[in-house]
Amino acid sequence: MRSVIDIKDLSTTELNELVAVAEDIIQNPDKYAHKCDRKKLATLFFEPSTRTRLSFEAAMYELGGHVLSMSDAGSSSAAKGESVADTAKTVSCYADIIAMRHPKEGAPLVAAMNASIPVINAGDGGHNHPTQTLADLLTIHREKARFDNLTIGLCGDLKFGRTVHSLISAMTRYSGIKFVLISPKELTVPSYVKKVIKEAGAECRETTDLLEAMPQLDILYMTRVQRERFFNEEDYLRLKDSYILTPEKLITAKKDLCIMHPLPRVNEISVKVDEDPRACYFKQVLNGKYMRMALILKLLEIK
């Protein structure tokens, strides 16, 4: 019985296998329509995240399984003082697999240590969100047909953006990867993440200028620069436009650039970019569902 709490819980072989299964699901959805007959997924969301919950639930339904939803978890058992450990043990009696979202970092690990069924971390505070990274990986694979020899631009809040750290950790496993880290000085990648890149032997360069980096990129991963990350309003206003993607900024970009964003966006990608065939962020959402299907199958050991 296995759980996935961190993207590092999956080996490179397993990541590749999940991508292969997801691609097969896309090609042959009927083959998978009854794989999870009579199986139940419990979605335990201790904080609201409708889009992630819907993705897990859609994934389970498309596999023919059922969903037990505790979407009001924040207002029920936890409010009565039940521990994460006890909740995990209780739910293990009803369901076959758990997807857990929790505002506290490490809560899904505590659940996994106590559950007798697999636990998938559906986001624990600002810490891990492995199924977002799985969605990112499938998107890269579908758009580029490879994981190696790619120049990946990561733009925006690289200091607090957990999806960025997790994607870096996953992509450093492949060869010929170059990272271009594009952010204001206040929001650069933390040193321990830089260490991960260095130890993996991947190339890495930092810049504050999105326009300057643009022509080299195969992938541009945008994140939001939030107002509350800045000490003063002036700095925020001065910087925010530099990290908003518009059609004008894409003039020098490669014809086959893949533009990604973990969503939801606020204004960091202009809606005018949506019409551009290089915009992949809504495909990313769909790919997230396929990867969650592949992961559920893997953890339930269904071939």
Binding site: S83, A85, K104, E105, L109, V110
Partner: peptide, 13 residues
């Protein structure tokens, strides 16, 4: 000491 850590709310861990 991380205030966002699950150990801050579940003291028996």
């Amino acid at each position: 000491k991380n205030p966002r850590c699950i150990t801050t709310t579940e003291q028996e861990l």
